[in-house]
Amino acid sequence: MIDQIPLSYYLLLSAILFTIGAGGVLIRRNAIIILMCVEMMMNAVNLTFIAFSRYLQSADGQIFVFMIMVVAAVEVAVGLALLVELNRHREAVNIDEFNSLKG
């Protein structure tokens, strides 16, 4: 069963999703939304991997996606835990209020 959809369609969709995610990271101030956008970017990449895996008929891309999912799960867990912790003390999730890394 050879798929009818060309590879470039998937790549284009993936690029659009990635860019939307990146834009979200840049324009939103809510830390939760930013984390969501990061997840979205990762998913865009996952889509690319799977598309290539399909067209190259190789399982490696899917393994990558699997690993990315593991990392994403951990990342979200830790990131949200940090967020909760930050919110406890700053009573805010607005990242513009956190600039103590200023040099």
Binding site: M1, D3, I5, Y10, L13, N46, L47, I50, A51, S53, R54, Q62, V65, F66
Partner: peptide
């Protein structure tokens, strides 16, 4: 859905 279309049912 895309994953299913791409023959990656497991993922």
């Amino acid at each position: 859905v895309f994953y299913l279309m791409l023959n990656a049912q497991f993922l």
